[in-house]
Design a protein around this nucleic acid. Structure first.
Length: 877
RNA sequence: GGGCGUAUAGCUCAGCUGGUUAGAGCGUUGCAUUGACAUUGCAAAGGUCUCCCGUUCAAUUCGGGAUACGCCUACCA
């Protein structure tokens, strides 16, 4: 084995071996018990893997590998999303840049085919990146949301939902003229979640429609006022009460309007003039008011964001030109009362950041509260009853509030990239059908909202409703996604899953946080603070990157990731490598290949204190690792494993093993077990070490996960006694002596003499005397039941045991006095605190006896220690 | 405006159902180093657990409030 672990030498080969074994495919796993299914969230097929994807994959792969080692039939199903609008935007930019053409130059069919090829090409590249992170997914089942079989399922669902009609004739999916968010650049409708809000300063204009209109109103969008059909006032507002119900015919900048005064309790009397101009066609609130009051709807702005004909000189102007012109006109006529700077939220397109035009348009909608099957109610029920368990728990409330506030979902998009809506028209006739009804029928031009496809990922990937995989693997065990797509994706999968399959699509829903840079800033290309996963993997190794994404990262919380952290875990990979390297030099060859589990843990013969201690610790860590993984506490699991591996195994046990010798059996067992425990976290280095031990015939990936074994020898005792307590004492004696050396600046080569006054621990310490001598670098060590502090020595107290180190001539008496004095003071404070507590009757009477007893025990120990410290201090004087 | 979250060592964070002399990693300081590992070892310094009030024998932990900072959401034109 090389002196240092070089990830680049091994990783690709290891991955290749895993892949060639076919064991990523659950069909090839034998002797399985139960199944474990995780459908990986499909990233957009137009880009590349970023560190956010990587952080999700690492969790998914950890779980997959853990369950595979538990002997379950594991399926991690990978895939890609066609990402309708985003891919179309990306590809349009590309052809514009490379060929100077638009999608219209290509035509719909050619454009579609080119994007398809483009996405497939990118997918392949992304797949190679996903393999680099170690993802043990079944690539033979990889899916793409635009694959014909998946599209077919999505279209069938549409038809089924369209045909779901209640007794009033309302459809679960309906077509209607409603106000929607329109992106004039993407030239498509958007759902509410595809709109972002940006704060910006704008002007708030206060004006009168005309001189004969009785009062003023305020607006930030004067150009839309051309379509006003009402003014809403609060019914309690005395100023306007008398006008309610009246109709005014006004001449607004040369355009005749009919304005009805309507009451609405939502109008804020204190905002502006307390009167709100109602523009039903270009504001979602106004549109709803118009529905309630049967107001006419006048469309002013068209899909190109230009003014419709019929508005005099404003017709044909762009919305912003029209705004200027309307304001000018008002000003010229003395109708503009006020212009104020005003901070409001501008809606912009999530994909291209173009300001959204709310406008009325004919689109397809999903009724989220249909009489036959209420999507929102059934989702709420499933979440409330924890048929889907959400991690972290607080996201349950977030999900519920989303469900409660959801509105009908606009699923049609006026783009070319995506499954085309399976509705056919002929004259006035309309039919929903996957295939053309025949000659002369023309298909709806629109495509589906991407989330209508990806919302069916949970079963479309498994060949719903008749596929073998669907029968075997639905619903999945866990779904893992970034917390930012909860409303987009998690919610939609749940409602569509419940409707189509009658079951929840997954049993557990786990949200990851965002990955930020080391200063907590969002990573972005423009800031240049991003971490490119492949680059960083090449530098530090996949395992290091995986650990930095797992440890210190808690569910739903954001993670700050800097290079230093990754370097730290690179060091740890190397540590593990060297632990293995050491153990393999110690174990005799014939023992190396001995199979795990051959160690009889209960057999107590010849086991030293250190042996019993490390085995009990190992046993604990097997338990805690398993439990923490099951509970999605990956960080805890990793941290405890690292502590065990580095601070207990490497720093103590291996050092002791060098002294005690003859431990091949235990060392072999230890190495074997920690490799298994680490494998889900850091699959590459563990697999490589495994190969060094067992050769290429056995793969760690499918070895069996270690089991917790309860036995006297492996179960830790109480902290004050038993194996754990005894070993702790041994450790503290060694650390105490080392500390004295360091404080008194005694060079490590100089060996010291020490005497221990050990009381009833004399026998125990005698057995381990050699360990103390070597690790604390002592020349002579004398262990007595009771010893008197020798002249020229200084000492310390540890669990009733006094250690005297001969420092005659070297020790700085004054410094030592200061140290002891400080310790004395601290102890006195501690003792008086405890004594006070114990003399408090309330405490003694109310606290559980065990607690009181514990405090009493602490007090006794502290008093004893204090007496000894005082004694030593006296000796120095 | 509504909702959610976070405030613990210089930095990044653990600390579950109240009783620990409050922990880790990184960083810092001192010492060491060719024998598993300098991608190392040993030792140490560093915290009135944001503030106030309450519940309790006991609060970093539970409740209320304040302050600060995040994130999500929204139809004040």
């Amino acid at each position: 084995m090389d002196k240092a672990y070089e990830p680049n030498l091994y990783e690709d080969n290891i991955y290749k071996r895993w892949e060639e074994s076919g064991l990523f495919n659950p069909d090839n796993l034998t002797n399985t018990k139960g199944r474990y299914v995780n459908l990986l969230p499909p990233p957009n097929a137009n880009g590349e893997m970023h560190v956010g994807h990587a952080s999700g994959y690492v969790v998914m792969d950890l779980l997959g590998r853990y369950h595979r080692m538990k002997g379950e039939k594991v399926l991690l199903l990978p895939g890609k999303d066609h990402a309708g609008i985003q891919s179309q935007v990306v590809y349009e930019k590309k052809i514009k840049k490379e060929q100077g053409i638009s999608r219209h130059d290509l035509g719909r069919e050619k454009f579609y085919n080119e994007i398809f090829a483009f996405c497939k090409d990118r997918s392949q590249y992304m797949r190679s990146q996903e393999k680099k992170i170690g993802l043990s997914a079944d690539w033979s089942r990889e899916k793409f949301t635009m694959d014909p079989d998946l599209v077919k399922i999505v279209l069938d669902t549409f038809v089924q939902m369209y045909n779901e009609v209640d007794n009033k004739g309302n459809r679960l999916i309906y077509r209607g003229d409603r106000i929607i968010n329109w992106c004039p650049r993407c030239f498509t409708a958007l759902s509410d979640v595809e709109v972002e809000h940006e704060e910006q300063m704008t002007k708030l204009y206060t004006f009168k429609y005309s001189n004969d209109f009785p009062f003023t109103i305020s607006t930030t969008r004067p150009e839309t006022k051309l379509g006003d059909t009402a003014v809403a006032v609060n019914e309690k507002d005395k100023r306007y009460k008398k006008y309610i119900g009246q109709e005014f015919k006004v001449d607004f900048v040369g355009v005749p309007l009919t304005i009805k005064i309507i009451p609405d309790h939502e109008v804020d009397m204190n905002f502006g003039t307390g009167a709100l101009g109602v523009t039903p066609a270009h504001s979602a609130v106004d549109w709803e008011m118009a529905q309630k009051n049967n107001l006419p709807i006048v469309k002013v702005i068209n899909e190109q964001a230009r003014i419709y004909p019929g508005f005099g000189k404003f017709s044909g102007l762009s919305a912003s030109e029209a705004r200027t012109a309307v304001v000018e006109e008002l000003r010229a006529n003395g109708l503009l009362e006020k212009e104020e700077e005003y901070l409001n939220n501008l809606s912009v397109c999530e994909r291209c950041k173009t300001p959204i035009e709310p406008l009325v348009s004919k689109q397809w909608f999903v009724n989220v509260d249909h009489a036959n099957f209420s999507l929102k109610k059934s989702a709420r029920k499933a979440i409330e009853k924890e048929e889907i368990k959400i991690y972290p728990e607080r996201f349950k409330d977030v999900m519920l509030s989303w469900i409660d506030n959801v509105r009908d979902w606009c699923i049609s998009r006026q783009i070319w990239w995506g499954p085309q809506i399976p509705v056919w028209y002929k004259g006035d006739e309309m039919v929903a059908s996957v295939d053309s009804p025949g000659e002369g029928w023309k298909q709806d031009e629109d495509t589906f909202d991407t989330w209508f496809s990806s919302g069916q990922w949970a079963y479309s990937t498994l060949g719903y409703p008749t596929g073998k995989d669907y029968q075997e693997f639905y619903p999945s065990d866990v779904m893992i996604m970034g917390r930012d797509i909860l409303p987009f994706w998690a919610f939609r999968m749940i409602i569509l899953g419940l409707y189509c399959t009658g079951e929840v699509p997954f049993k557990n829903l786990y949200f990851t946080g965002l990955v930020r840079d080391e200063n907590g800033q969002k990573m972005s290309k423009s800031k240049g603070n991003g971490i490119e996963p492949i680059e960083i993997i090449n530098k530090y190794g996949t395992d290091a990157v995986r650990l930095s994404l797992l440890i210190g990262n808690t569910p739903g919380n954001d993670l700050n990731l800097g290079e230093q952290k990754i370097a730290g875990f690179r060091n740890f990979s190397n540590k593990l490598w060297n632990i293995a390297r050491f153990i393999m030099t110690v174990i005799p060859t014939e023992a190396i290949r001995r199979v795990e589990g051959s160690l009889d843990l209960a057999r107590d013969d010849k086991k030293t204190l250190a042996d019993k201690w490390i085995l009990s610790k190992l046993n604990e860590v097997i338990k805690s690792t398993s439990e923490n993984i099951e509970q999605f506490n990956f960080s805890q699991a990793g941290e405890q494993l690292r502590d065990f591996t580095w601070n207990e195994l490497a720093d103590w046990y291996l050092e002791i093993a060098k002294i005690e010798g003859e431990k091949s059996e235990i060392l072999n067992y230890l190495l074997n077990t920690i490799l298994k425990l680490w494998h889900p976290f850091m699959p590459f280095v563990t697999e490589q070490i495994w190969t060094e031990i067992y050769g290429k015939d056995r793969m760690l990936m499918v070895e069996r996960w270690p089991v917790f074994v309860a036995s006297d020898a492996t179960t830790p005792g109480k902290p004050e006694g038993g194996v754990a307590g005894d070993f702790e004492l041994l450790k503290n004696i060694i650390t105490g002596i080392r500390s004295l050396r360091a404080e008194n600046k005694i060079e490590p080569v100089k060996k010291l003499n020490a005497i221990i006054s050990a009381g009833d621990k004399a026998g125990l310490l005698q057995e381990n005397a050699e360990i103390i001598k070597v690790l604390a670098r002592l020349e002579n060590l004398q262990i007595e039941e009771s010893a008197i502090k020798p002249e020229g020595s200084i000492g310390f107290v540890e669990s009733g045991v006094e250690v005297f180190v001969d420092l005659s001539g070297v020790v700085d008496i004054e410094k030592e006095k200061v140290r002891l004095e400080k310790e004395k003071q601290e102890l006195e404070k501690y003792v008086s605190g405890l004594a006070g507590k114990l003399s408090n009757k309330e405490f003694v009477n109310n606290a559980p006896p065990a607690v009181v007893e514990k405090e009493q025990h602490k007090l006794n120990e502290a008093k004893d220690k204090l007496a000894k410290v005082i004694n030593q201090l006296e000796g120095l004087r």
